[in-house]
Design a protein around this nucleic acid. Structure first.
Lengths: 226, 226
DNA sequence: TTAATAATGGTAAATGAAACAAAAACACAC
DNA sequence: GTGTGTTTTTGTTTCATTTACCATTATTAA
């Protein structure tokens, strides 16, 4: 417990991902102060003494946005001594999957969605953090259908396939995807169809059960407090 | 940057796993100070300002043991406000897979191996941390043969199977395991056999290539400095 | 010779992955 | 109302991989 050990600061940063305009997008905030003034950054903030890390991440999320349905999971803790130019700041990074329809931006600062395949210059090591969140999202998608967290409440299988393709970065076979999707636990077929397009209507589906293969991840549903 | 945010302390704790006496074991240190005096704990220490988290974990490891071949990976960051009775201590947990033959205990404090299936009372939330490290080890084993990090440099397929069974907590079919093991990338068949037992000698194998499916994990090999 | 364990071969069943084409339903133009 | 265009919906086959299950031979020490 020498003095050297006592001047860390710890933050949480939250990579917020959604699908919007047929692209994977991440919510970024424009910094108003130095360092990295005017650069874009992942939303973040200091961890308060009274809250645990999950709570801190959720608070950061809610400071910027009004969200209802989210998937939130701790990503990795980044602690390079030089990652923050002004001192030793260790950040515990989280990532969240949200539906863009569920998000209302409540921040006063400049905030916007950016395509993850075309990021602006970012502050700190935030580019690395975003890249890692994509890798983790892919890993999660391979073991559980977290992608539905990015979709509207009711969606077609084609939309679901699109979101898989966006995350996995590759084309999938339509029939094979459909077969696998239909066997997914928790997927329910609705008696509703899309309307208003000059083509055959698509059946709508929704997710009821929350199947989660990763512990230490959190689904925050409508109405959950805190 | 209110004052409340500035009094965290951050530590690293390292779950050190090995296979010894036909059991998965974890290295624990007996605490000499309060809190949790005389309880067992995972080796840990404060993060210094000049080092990153990986370096801190490695330093903690080397303060307790002289190790050569290790697999080291960040596990999870635990930050419950009440996890440390004396204040707010956030810990970044790591886990390491080592060969018990490669470890020399250099610590002056009381240190010992404990079977993970039969743990003594532990300090803080260390039981939870160990449980999580087992889960992660299983996940890793499913995608890459990290188990060889627990084995002697030269090992028989039966020993390898034993280590898989210990980690996965289930029996495996001998012939199927052998078939899969032999097709593992990096496994090399040696022209050596076990000796000195009243039975048929078993062929020895070793690993040459380090195949790693998880980024952000580190293999520290013989001779690596730092 | 015996006891003990290692090495090895094979097969049947189940599962999963990849490749493929054709019919059905709607909107719209004519 | 008929035809056209677009998108959805659906099934089979093949191939490779995994799993389950079973039995025998080989090598050594004692």
């Amino acid at each position: 417990m020498v003095n050297e050990t006592k001047t860390h600061e710890i933050t949480v940063d939250v990579v917020i991902l959604t699908i919007k305009n047929n692209a994977l997008q991440v919510l970024l905030v424009k910094r108003v102060n130095e360092p990295f003034k005017d650069k874009w950054a992942i939303p973040g903030g200091y961890v308060r003494l009274s809250e645990n890390l999950d709570e801190a991440a959720l608070r950061v999320l809610k400071e910027k946005t009004a969200v209802d349905n989210i998937y939130l999971e701790q990503l990795y803790t980044f602690g390079d001594p030089l990652r923050h130019p002004d001192g030793r700041v260790i950040t515990c990074a989280y990532f969240a999957l949200v539906r863009s329809e569920d998000i209302k931006i409540v921040s006063t600062t400049e905030l916007g969605w950016h395509k993850v395949m075309d990021l602006p210059p970012l502050a700190f090591d935030h580019k690395e953090i975003i890249q890692y969140s994509l890798k983790r999202t892919r890993e999660r998608l391979e073991i559980c259908p977290v992608a539905y967290q990015l979709l509207p409440e009711k969606f077609t299988l084609t939309e679901m396939q699109k979101s898989y393709e966006l995350i996995m970065q590759k084309k999938l076979d339509k029939r094979n995807f459909r077969k696998k999707a239909l066997s997914t636990d928790g997927l329910v077929e609705l008696e509703e169809y899309t309307k208003s397009s000059s083509k055959r209507p698509a059946r709508l589906y929704t997710f009821e059960k929350i199947e989660l293969n990763s512990k230490r991840a959190h689904f925050i549903k409508k109405g959950d407090k805190k």
